[in-house]
Amino acid sequence: MPEQTSRTGFFTHDERHRIGFPWSKSFDFAVQNLRNRFTRSLITMSSLILAVAFLAFILVNLNIATGLVQFGGTEFASILSEMGFDVDTALGTVTTGPKERWIVLLSLLVCTVGIINAQLMSVTERFRIIGIFKCLGALDSIILRLFLIEAAIIGVIGAAIGAAAGIAFAFINGLFNFGVAALILVSLFDVFISFLLATATGFALSIIGVLYPAILAARMEPVKALNAQH
């Protein structure tokens, strides 16, 4: 027994007795998990892709509309107003109409619930493995970290794909409705900001979705996790 300094005198927190799981190993393990459960990961990711694509589409639509109003002249302003945008020609700003805003908000809410649900499933269906990990001496933080890395990977990839798809779709939509002007007049910087915004939102949703079930799972008594039904 090493020198006894801990509360119970059971062992010391010195280097030799530290329990850990290196970051590189955690990362490998998370990637391996994603690969092993590829279809499952795709399902988790697809709800994220859809939500982010939708958000990016809405944002970039606004970017395009703003570009048209600012540089395209009044004819576009009236078309946009007809399409339900709130156009302020004096300021050159465009916002979605209240009805559209409401629809967007609702859709995002539905998507958020979908993402959280998918992440919840991905944790609960692995209660048993979490139990085994804990029986073998994994700390709560190790388990939490594994799930967070996984969620982060899904979050980054899913959100980036979703944002790119949403932007592409918004461009096609703009081209179809307003012609080439839509693509010429839009500020690419604004589009980039929209891309970042949508990606960040998706990433955050993925992490938030996994956080609660992962904390719950990490804190479970090992035997409870082992025997948990899902």
Partner: peptide, 24 residues
């Protein structure tokens, strides 16, 4: 009375488990 670290250490180093249901 063990804290989380000590309990993890106990499970990790002090005791080896062979479960009825393997749990691999």
């Amino acid at each position: 009375q063990l804290d989380a670290y000590e309990l993890a250490w106990l499970r990790n180093r002090k005791i080896g488990y062979i479960f009825q249901t393997f749990n691999i």
